[in-house]
Amino acid sequence: MTRAFLPGILAMAAIVVASNILVQFLILDGLLTWGAFTYPLAFLVTDVMNRVYGAEAARRVVFAGFVTGVICSLIGSQIVLQGDGYTYAAVPLRIAVASGSAFLIAQLTDVAVFNRFRGGRWWRAPLVSTLIGSALDTALFFTIAFSASITLFGPDADTAVNWAWEAVPFMNKGAPMPLWVTLAFADWLVKLSLALIALVPFRVIVQRLAPARATA
């Protein structure tokens, strides 16, 4: 059965690696990164594994993705980039901790919520679990990574992310708020959209895998 999980593990690892690379590329004047469009696919992989192979298989895939993310963060923390007269780590400490924590908690929550709604209509479990998991992921990541109210990482770690504390109009139009709040909201909107779109590949993949598993 472990071999059956391998495609899910590889898919999750590929998504995590791709997202860690693509997050470096900004779009829409820095409002989003290309990684915002690949990372939500992790919820699709988790939900497919959960539907076809069960919660334990989904959790194994999640832990594989978590380990992959930790490795990416360790590598990124050793890469030094050049700014305007200064240098900085590609993956600062706060972002590394936020990324790993948000991923693990949100994905495991997704697995639990999916199980809660497993017996309903086919779309209910993946949609509800992804919406809740995505919202939790966004809230945890951006708060831990950028909120000025969290000071446990120390002044050096805060300095690496204090650019996100700048007060700017919310979504470029509303009342002034810390930049990271706008970034979080934009990220969540992408996750929300992809949660709906992902129902199509979820349905197709599950219909292909479920009969194959039944005859295996």
Rank of each mutant, 00 (worst) to 15 (best):
K191W: 14
A139D: 06
P169D: 13
P178Q: 12
T46A: 06
V168F: 04
L131V: 01
V206T: 11
L192W: 04
I21N: 02
L199D: 00
Y39T: 05
D110R: 07
S99I: 01
Y39H: 08
L194A: 05
L31E: 01
A167Y: 14
I79P: 01
L194W: 09
L108D: 05
R59A: 04
Y39S: 04
I205D: 05
R213W: 06
V111P: 00
L26H: 04
P201T: 13
L183T: 07
V200M: 11
L81N: 10
Q107A: 12
F141S: 07
A139S: 05
G30S: 02
N162M: 15
A157Q: 10
S193I: 00
F5G: 04
V80P: 02
T215L: 14
A36V: 02
A186K: 11
R208E: 11
V190D: 01
G65S: 10
G120D: 01
E166Q: 15
P40S: 06
F43I: 01
A102W: 15
R203M: 01
M177N: 00
W163S: 05
A148R: 11
Q24T: 14
I105N: 03
N162A: 12
I21F: 07
A96C: 01
R60T: 14
L194Q: 13
L131H: 04
V52P: 00
L31W: 07
A112V: 00
G30Q: 08
A148G: 11
A14I: 03
F141R: 11
P178V: 11
F142A: 07
F37Y: 08
P178W: 15
T46E: 03
D110E: 06
V97C: 05
T87W: 11
P92G: 10
M1R: 15
D187R: 09
N162K: 15
V16I: 15
V45N: 06
W123P: 00
G154I: 04
F146Q: 05
L74W: 15
E166N: 12
I27T: 02
I75M: 11
W122N: 01
A11C: 11
A164C: 01
W165H: 15
A98L: 09
W34V: 00
I95C: 12
G30A: 07
R59W: 08
G133P: 02
S149V: 03
F5I: 13
W123E: 02
L140K: 14
R51Q: 07
S19W: 03
W163D: 11
A175S: 13
A148T: 03
A102K: 13
S73Y: 08
R124N: 01
V190G: 07
D84I: 04
G76P: 09
V161Q: 06
P176K: 15
I150D: 13
V70M: 15
A11E: 09
T159V: 05
C72R: 13
W34N: 09
A198E: 07
W188K: 00
I27Y: 05
L104A: 09
R118Q: 04
A198Q: 04
S73M: 12
A96M: 05
V128R: 02
P40G: 02
A57G: 11
A57E: 09
I150S: 03
N20Y: 05
T143V: 06
L26E: 08
S134F: 02
L196H: 01
Y39C: 06
A42H: 09
A139H: 07
A186Q: 08
F117I: 02
F170T: 10
Y86T: 11
Q207W: 08
T182A: 14
A112G: 01
F141W: 14
W165E: 13
